[in-house]
Lab assay of single mutants.
Amino acid sequence: MEVRTIKVFTTVDNINLHTQVVDMSMTYGQQFGPTYLDGADVTKIKPHNSHEGKTFYVLPNDDTLRVEAFEYYHTTDPSFLGRYMSALNHTKKWKYPQVNGLTSIKWADNNCYLATALLTLQQIELKFNPPALQDAYYRARAGEAANFCALILAYCNKTVGELGDVRETMSYLFQHANLDSCKRVLNVVCKTCGQQQTTLKGVEAVMYMGTLSYEQFKKGVQIPCTCGKQATKYLVQQESPFVMMSAPPAQYELKHGTFTCASEYTGNYQCGHYKHITSKETLYCIDGALLTKSSEYKGPITDVFYKENSYTTTIK
Rank of each mutant, 00 (worst) to 15 (best):
Y274H: 00
K127V: 10
M26I: 13
S310M: 15
V189Q: 08
S294T: 14
V188C: 08
W107Y: 00
Q175G: 07
T10L: 15
E68L: 07
R66V: 13
L235N: 02
H276S: 06
N157W: 01
T211Q: 07
T27P: 15
D303M: 09
I286E: 01
Q216H: 08
Q123L: 05
C182T: 02
A154Q: 01
G288D: 06
Q123V: 06
E168R: 15
F148N: 01
V3P: 14
G164T: 00
E296I: 08
A150C: 03
T159H: 14
E71F: 05
C271K: 13
V243K: 02
T103D: 03
E253I: 11
Q251K: 10
L119G: 05
C112R: 00
H48E: 14
K316L: 15
A247W: 00
E253L: 09
S25W: 11
V21R: 12
G228L: 02
F217V: 10
S246K: 00
G194D: 01
K95E: 14
T64M: 10
P241Q: 11
V21G: 10
Y265I: 04
A231D: 00
N61W: 12
I301D: 04
Q196S: 13
H74P: 03
Y274Q: 00
T192G: 12
N61E: 05
S104Q: 01
K255V: 14
T314W: 11
K219W: 04
L283P: 00
C193M: 05
L179R: 04
A205V: 01
N309C: 15
L151N: 05
C285N: 09
Y138I: 14
Q195Y: 09
T55L: 06
V12A: 09
G164L: 01
P34Q: 14
Q20Y: 09
A115G: 09
W107A: 02
S25M: 10
L118K: 06
A247C: 08
K316I: 15
F128L: 02
D77I: 04
I277P: 01
Y84H: 13
H276D: 01
F174A: 06
R141I: 06
L121S: 06
M244K: 06
H74A: 04
D135K: 08
T260C: 11
V8G: 04
E215M: 01
G53P: 05
Y155D: 04
I15G: 07
A117L: 03
V58L: 09
G29T: 08
C190I: 03
I315L: 15
F148W: 01
E239F: 07
T226K: 14
K275H: 02
I6H: 07
T116I: 05
K7H: 13
K191W: 05
N268S: 14
Q222P: 11
Y208S: 09
I286W: 04
N89C: 14
A250P: 00
K219A: 12
T75L: 06
G272M: 00
K106D: 14
A154L: 08
N49E: 12
K201A: 05
F305Y: 07
F70T: 12
E71I: 07
E2R: 10
L59T: 11
Y113H: 04
P97L: 14
K158L: 04
T75F: 08
Y172K: 13
T75I: 08
K7C: 12
K106V: 13
L235C: 05
K93L: 14
E204F: 03
T10C: 14
K44H: 09
N309P: 09
T292M: 09
E125N: 09
G257M: 08
T198V: 13
D23P: 12
N49M: 13
E204Y: 13
K54G: 11
K219P: 01
L37A: 11
A205H: 05
V188S: 07
Y306V: 02
K275C: 08
A40S: 13
D41K: 07
T76W: 09
T211V: 09
L59R: 06
P241S: 08
K307A: 13
F128V: 04
L290N: 15
K106F: 12
G267I: 12
K46Y: 12
N100S: 10
F148M: 14
Y234E: 06
Y306E: 01
Q134I: 07
T91N: 03
D303K: 09
Y265H: 05
M24W: 09
E239R: 10
Y208W: 10
S50G: 12
F128M: 02
F9Y: 14
Y84L: 06
Q237G: 05
G210L: 03
Q122L: 01
H273Q: 00
S263R: 05
K191V: 09
P224F: 10
V67T: 13
F148V: 01
Y72P: 04
K183V: 10
L153S: 01
L114W: 04
N110Q: 09
L290C: 11
L102R: 12
K95I: 14
I105Y: 07
T11M: 03
G194A: 07
S50D: 13
T292H: 12
Q134E: 05
Y138G: 13
H273S: 00
D63N: 09
S104Y: 01
E2T: 11
S86K: 13
A115S: 08
A150Q: 08
Y274C: 07
Y311F: 13
C225Q: 01
D13E: 15
F56Q: 02
W94L: 04
S25D: 15
I301Q: 01
N187H: 07
D180G: 09
Y73D: 04
L254V: 09
T258R: 09
A289C: 06
T75A: 07
D38M: 08
E308P: 10
D303H: 00
R139I: 04
T116W: 03
T75G: 04
T199H: 08
H18L: 05
E253S: 11
P78R: 13
I45M: 12
E52K: 12
V22Q: 08
T226F: 08
L186I: 15
F305Q: 00
C225G: 03
R83Y: 06
L88I: 08
E162F: 01
E204L: 09
